[in-house]
Write a protein that binds this DNA or RNA. Structure first.
Lengths: 228, 228
DNA sequence: CAACACAATTTTGTATACAATATTGTTGAT
DNA sequence: ATCAACAATATTGTATACAAAATTGTGTTG
């Protein structure tokens, strides 16, 4: 990390910055986020860092261990299943609403997103591609004009990124954009039912591309998994 | 508020305490939560109070205005609609799952909840009754064994309490327990479909008992609604 | 007396100092 | 050499001091 002195970072800005770094797998699950380290990196006091870490813990992206520090969260298999069950409840119907409200401008936004994701993949920036892939889902909630649900979905998407980091099986990344293309078509036709159905199976596809068998919980973080 | 010196309050404890006070309408929407005031009331430093207020703001129960302080949130009509739309997506299917997993022990828990709510109503403790009524919904999510969804629902329930404080129309409080009784029956029969349907109409009932007409946004908080 | 400017006060925002706790390192006895 | 006890170090938890901002109060001027 590098110190950027040009502007002073607010707590919210740090949250966004860290959330994106986590989402793009630049900060893998289990990474320790020391307060001094961060405060020096951003050129701010620990007070602000602390507020940011607290916010991230409320979004389940960071785990705070009392007197032990903050770590990038490592969702359990259990939690992974729950996250996708929640997405299954929220996203299909939200996609339905979005389809009915779709405008040319919003359609163009989604198209641009897919284009950028392709570009990122071609440039080898897989982290950025993953982030954009998630943004596609958030954008749909925004188009559905449901900010409360949008916030929930945004949280679930970020957590999904951690889940992917831990449990991804397939290497085929294009299945993603394929599904997004199909959704785009349904949106273009303002076909709510189709969008809902496509989103449902897209999410199902995602889960099945994960390795969520109960065996072999990855003890990524050293002693933590052994001692207690 | 009174200072309690017997034990030192942690941030989490303060969050729970304030959340419950808000949920029970002891702290109505718009109430200013001054940091000094709270730190003195709980006998802790502003640092802890600040962390608690930050947590509550992330749950949308408290609104933080920069350099102006913390206030118990006043959900807009727009936000109120969104909250119940989110509940409509989450709760019916969750009730379905809960019904299928229902055990005698859990059934007894729900029964006790309804009983306590009745008792609270008879004792004139309408705030406590409202809290218990919300807990009924949270308990269902817990029984469904979906902690992620449970957290979402718990948030939405708390916010619903604020919405009720602002927009409640009917005075009939027993419609509530009536619906809960019906749900209990479905749970006892492990009838998922019925539970899902009952929850759906229960939520619809709740919304229609609110006054969410766009006219007359209540300018409860003085100058705030006028100046900016 | 109304309106404005400016001072005083209050309240929040941030940094830092210190305390508490956990971790690591060292010494010494067996 | 192994282990335990204890010291040293590092990191987080909390309180407080100070800075910044907003609010309130006061007085001057027209």
């Amino acid at each position: 990390m590098e110190t950027i002195e040009t502007k002073s970072w607010t707590s919210d800005m740090v949250v966004v910055d860290l959330e994106r770094a986590i989402h793009e797998h630049r900060l893998p699950p289990g990474t320790k986020l020391g307060e001094d380290e961060l405060s020096e990196a951003y050129g701010i006091s620990r007070t602000i860092v602390r507020a940011a870490l607290l916010a991230l813990s409320h979004r389940h992206l960071v785990e705070l261990k009392r007197n032990r520090g903050a770590y990038v969260a490592q969702p359990s298999i259990r939690e992974a299943r729950e996250v996708f069950e929640a997405r299954a409840l929220l996203e299909p119907r939200t996609a339905h609403s979005a389809a009915l409200r779709m405008t040319d401008k919003n359609l163009a936004l989604l198209q641009a997103n897919i284009r950028d994701e392709h570009a990122a993949l071609d440039a080898g920036e897989s982290g950025r591609a993953l982030f954009l892939s998630g943004q596609f889902h958030v954008e749909i909630a925004r188009i559905a004009d449901q900010s409360t649900i949008e916030i929930f979905i945004s949280q679930l998407i970020s957590r999904s990124s951690l889940i992917i980091a831990l449990y991804w099986r397939r290497r085929a990344a294009l299945c993603e954009t394929q599904a997004h293309h199909a959704l785009l078509d349904a949106f273009a036709r303002k076909d709510g039912g189709a969008a809902e159905q496509l989103m449902k199976s897209h999410l199902l596809d995602l889960v099945t591309s994960l390795d969520l068998r109960n065996v072999s919980e990855p003890p990524t973080s050293l002693r933590d998994a052994l001692n207690r």
